[in-house]
Measured scan of single mutants.
Amino acid sequence: MDVFMKGLSKAKEGVVAAAEKTKQGVAEAAGKTKEGVLYVGSKTKEGVVHGVATVAEKTKEQVTNVGGAVVTGVTAVAQKTVEGAGSIAAATGFVKKDQLGKNEEGAPQEGILEDMPVDPDNEAYEMPSEEGYQDYEPEA
């Protein structure tokens, strides 16, 4: 019985440690998101679009440190934060509304985080759909 109880105690310690790591990862992701939003706020009209992409990228980098179902929630929060940063930029006159959601080359930025393969159960990952990809044929 002692062996059984000791095993359960060790398992509990492992769960607590994993929860603490997840909590730490979420806190880091939130900190990076805040950094990115402050970065966007300090940019001029020309830099705002690039700044919004930076927020998304920093958040995406930190999301990889967070495991399990938390990833889905962090990704949703990050996307809403990026959308909010863009709205703030438009409201303050840093950028025109028609410039939001495009990178410096004018290509749409939507789907940055949505296409990231995420499995809350950590069982399997699927690649994003290939609808947006084109076949590449090298020139002879």
Rank of each mutant, 00 (worst) to 15 (best):
G25Q: 12
G84M: 14
G47Q: 01
E110D: 05
A78V: 11
V77D: 02
E105T: 11
K45N: 02
L100V: 08
K96P: 13
V66W: 13
E57F: 09
T59D: 00
E35C: 15
G14K: 15
M5G: 02
G14Q: 09
V15Y: 15
I88C: 10
E46H: 04
A89S: 08
P138W: 08
V16I: 13
G51E: 02
E61Y: 14
A19E: 00
E126P: 11
S129L: 15
Y133G: 12
D2W: 05
M5D: 01
V77W: 14
I88T: 05
D2M: 01
T64Q: 05
A27W: 09
K43L: 04
G132T: 14
A107I: 09
G101E: 00
E123Y: 05
F4T: 00
V82T: 03
K10W: 07
K97H: 04
D115K: 13
G106F: 06
E110Q: 08
Q79A: 05
M5W: 01
L38A: 11
L8A: 02
E137P: 08
N65A: 03
G41V: 12
Q109L: 12
G132W: 13
L38Y: 12
S87P: 01
E137A: 14
S42Q: 07
M127P: 05
E13N: 11
H50A: 04
E114A: 14
N103E: 05
G41H: 03
K23H: 06
T92E: 02
A30L: 15
E46A: 14
G86T: 08
E13R: 02
K96W: 15
P120H: 05
D98F: 02
G93K: 05
V52W: 13
V71A: 10
T44M: 15
M5H: 06
E20H: 15
T33V: 14
K12N: 01
V71D: 02
S42H: 00
G67Q: 03
L8Q: 00
G31W: 11
E57H: 06
G106E: 12
K58M: 14
V118D: 13
G7E: 05
G25M: 14
E110S: 03
V37L: 11
Y133E: 14
K6A: 08
V55T: 03
E131K: 05
V70W: 03
A107Y: 10
K21H: 05
E131P: 12
D2I: 13
P117E: 13
G86S: 13
I88V: 06
K58V: 07
V82Q: 06
A30Y: 14
V37A: 08
E105Q: 08
A29Q: 03
K43V: 10
A107Q: 10
K96F: 12
V26A: 05
E139D: 07
M1D: 01
A107M: 07
A76N: 01
M1L: 03
E110F: 09
T33M: 07
G93V: 06
M127Q: 08
T44W: 13
Y136E: 12
T33H: 04
D119E: 08
T59W: 15
E110R: 04
P117A: 06
G86H: 10
N122A: 09
Q62M: 10
G25A: 15
T59G: 05
G86L: 10
T75V: 14
A91Y: 14
A107L: 10
G67E: 02
N103Q: 10
D135G: 09
K21W: 06
A76I: 05
A29M: 04
